[in-house]
Design a protein around this nucleic acid. Structure first.
Lengths: 336, 336
DNA sequence: CTGAAAGCGCTAACAG
DNA sequence: CTGTTAGCGCTTTCAG
């Protein structure tokens, strides 16, 4: 039997096809698909069978055209090359897929304002947006609000934005890092931070500073750079060249910590942790590598992702800030 | 002035809106947008102005519904956690964005057949698919063919698939690795591979074996595992426990190599490169870290991405195989 | 050159 | 319970 096919979308099975196959109306098909409205049991069964045998797949374009919503969640990011990113992306994509959502990925080019990306994203009538970079302005968040699209800031956030935030409790983590070092007997602590403007850097540093202050101590030095291995190495070099006297380093993240350790060991011949103790942040896979065995503060990625999913589901776009507790991971870079 | 808005898609600027604003027909608007068909210069100008002032953005859903094609390229992957992945993803997303493409990301769950993912992807009438996992069967490739959707296998590929392939010249890289080791005087070489079924593993191993044979040598041992740090460490342990006598290791990728180095050094007290020399593959950022200074074979990611873009543009879906030459990166894990 | 008109595949009223 | 009907925003004939 020759299958009739229309010019556009050849071989595509539509609701009309399955309606014909099941001797029902196309509207009925839509109803069973939507699980909405009434349809007789026998008709329903015929339709469901036809769907299976014909291999029907709903067309997301048509669907979102009429409903004004797609099944897509957009992920907007800019920090692909940081080792924390794959962890987050893997968890995020897994959770999203489990919920049947598809993912549109927007990797903001270096220096590109994410604000410019937002309208682009909105064109797709996405069901939600996950932003993992800081530079979302309140204006952009507002636009999403008006469009009724939930936005959640994941990991990083902008203070100005009124979008809900999910992050690890960086301040608490910073304070944990300080105490870990302090409890080990370190007294001359320095902070080797990442991008100065970013919320994780700010919060980690603040928490660390606070814990130091609580014990009546001031930092030997604090400096910001970027969340990279190279900066970790360079930061240590700067500290050394300016003659800072430190016996412990709290690093903005694990990449920085690895760079710092290597510089300490291979460039300056110092021992870790005997000469200087060191705590990182994130607990990326490399932190567990034998060459480092980095003591660090783990970001609770699964919990953060879970909270994000929750927020995305809720219609209520109230500006909340969910801080998931981090976890101290003791390895071998803090003297004992 | 009260803006009239329809119930669905509130605040959305449509072609009708801009047509009204420019006193033209909606069809004319479409024509200038499509750069297709005639439209008087003055009308055109009015329309273009209206587009700007009203901030019109085409609706991808409507567009792809009618045209049967979206502006989306799907990236299907499964290996997010391998350190090579961020490199590839960053380059891919950058190149795609530069060409104005949007990206739908499908992260195949562990063990999930990518074949099952393909129909899901096709629903979106994507303009192309980039597959970075091996398990695409020829059947799935065929389906894409029928749908007129170009597929390119990036990095990994299945022999059966008839989709064009872009990969680094892994065999040549493997042979380069062998020669690097051989030229340094190593004679007892072993291969510590990744996933046995994967094309990169097969080709790297084959090229390496061939280069050994060309010099009349046989490998001390070859074993496959997975492309992970942990396997690298475990592989070395196995080699040691089974009493293999080797003075050089060619590792399936850099992650394996790092694991191997650490096991060699910290578990077995051996020196790298004095006791055993070692070459990796990929040249991920970690390979350059001071703790490793890994000599490796760099995958030419930018060139691979460029070739992929090219293939995606061409309508011709002939099964080609583009092998981009790799590059030997000499660092400090091969004795001299 | 231009506007009117016909759908793309689907959801959601709306009358039977 | 059901089919018919009206679009969603857009591209593309097709007559003017």
């Amino acid at each position: 039997m020759v299958q009739e096919r229309r010019k556009v979308s050849p071989g595509r099975v539509t609701q009309r096809d399955i309606a014909r196959h099941a001797s029902a109306s196309q509207a009925a098909v839509s109803r069973v698909l939507m699980k909405k409205g009434y349809v007789a049991d026998d008709v329903k069964k015929r339709i469901e069978e036809a769907i299976l045998t014909l291999g029907y797949r709903p067309d997301p374009a048509a669907r979102s055209l009429i409903s004004g919503r797609s099944n897509i969640i957009a992920i907007v990011m800019a920090n692909v090359l940081n080792p924390f990113f794959p962890l987050a992306l893997d968890a995020l994509t897994g959770a999203l897929r489990k919920r049947g959502r598809d993912i549109l990925l927007f990797n903001a080019a270096a220096g590109q304002k994410i604000d410019e990306l937002i309208p682009e994203v909105l064109r797709y009538r996405v069901a939600g947006i996950i932003v993992t970079t800081a530079d979302l302005t309140s204006r952009a968040a507002e636009i999403c609000n008006e469009a009724g699209v939930p936005v959640v800031m994941f990991h990083r956030y902008a203070e100005l934005g009124n979008a809900p935030i999910v992050a690890c409790d960086n301040a608490r983590g910073g304070s944990d890092a300080a105490n870990l070092l302090l409890d080990a007997g370190c007294r001359k602590l320095a902070y080797l931070g990442g991008n100065s403007g970013s919320s994780p850097n700010r919060d980690r540093r603040a928490g660390w500073l606070e814990a130091l202050a609580a014990r009546g101590l001031a930092p030997v030095a604090t400096m910001n750079g970027s969340f990279t291995y190279d900066w970790g190495a360079e930061g240590v070099a700067r500290l050394m060249h300016q003659g800072s006297d430190f016996d412990a380093l709290f690093c903005g993240d694990d990449a920085i910590a690895c760079g710092a350790i290597d510089a300490l060991r291979y460039k300056f011949g110092l021992r870790v942790p005997e000469d200087v103790s060191l705590v990182g942040f994130d607990d990326v896979p490399q932190a567990a590598w034998e060459a480092y065995r980095l003591s660090t503060i783990r970001q609770p990625v699964p919990e953060m992702v879970e909270a994000t999913m929750q927020l995305l589901e809720t219609e209520d776009l109230a500006p909340t800030k969910i801080l998931v507790p981090s976890q101290v991971i003791r390895r071998s870079t803090v003297r004992s």
